[in-house]
Nucleic acid binder design. Structure first.
Lengths: 127, 127
DNA sequence: TATCTGTTATATTATATGTATAACAGATAT
DNA sequence: ATATCTGTTATACATATAATATAACAGATA
């Protein structure tokens, strides 16, 4: 099963960030399971037409954040032990990210139910 | 009533973005009401110890997004007509922002209720 | 031996961020 | 009227980030 990567080169979102997010989405959807192998930096870079270092940057950050492991021998694999569960540190960062998003939504007249329902519908994509 | 601005110069979040967000928070909390005046670019820059152009960039974007109006005469004021209500365009952007956030939360074992409750508690700060 | 890994190093280009001055034009207050 | 304050624009500079382009090294494998 090949994970399909869709990049928007015109986006203000950096390519390596888009790549990271799509791999995380793949894990969240169960398309990528613990222990599954990922393409090498060179082959993935060639496949999607970007530079080796851009893929490497995404991989290094995914490794740093506990999503994947990188072995000299086995290559790149989704963390066999699963991703580290949400701790206080992660919750703090999530809070800090959501806070200004919700502030703007309040300004634009969205009420709590409306916002929660939007989140709820997004959660449905991962089940 | 002076809106207190708290900048983290070490943050990876640009200064003008932090400034924007804190003004939006001020509006969401009702500290800044429609028609209220904001400091001039020069005085605010001097107050918080940053460059005139950094404040100007934040103001220009806030104007572009409908939060404030800038008159040659009256100076800078919170949009007297209120901020433009959430439309399909805004909902689409919000969706696109929340999607990867929720994907990561799913990876980290947060269930829907947990996430929604976190959002709910953040909404409570604006009421 | 040749090939494929991840990794590291350098260099270059382009863009984003933030600061520093300076000037212009309109409005306002003394 | 003179001075001051407004937003706005222009130019320049320094720094950091993003992305690419080569190249090389060391370990594993066919």
């Amino acid at each position: 099963m090949t994970l399909l990567i869709n990049l928007d080169l015109e986006s203000d979102e950096p390519i390596y960030t888009q790549l990271k997010q799509q791999i995380i989405v793949g894990i969240a959807k169960g398309l990528l399971k613990p222990g599954d192998g990922l393409p090498s930096v060179r082959s993935l870079a060639a496949d999607i037409g970007i530079n080796l270092h851009t893929v490497n940057k995404a991989y290094q950050q995914l490794k740093q954040e506990g999503f994947i492991l990188i072995h000299r021998q086995k290559g790149v694999v989704v963390n066999p032990d699963g991703v580290q569960k949400a701790d206080e540190d992660y919750r703090g960062k999530l809070n800090k990210t959501l806070y200004p998003l919700i502030a703007e939504s309040v300004c634009r007249g969205m009420n709590e139910d409306e916002f929660l329902q939007l989140c709820s519908s997004l959660f449905k994509e991962f089940s």
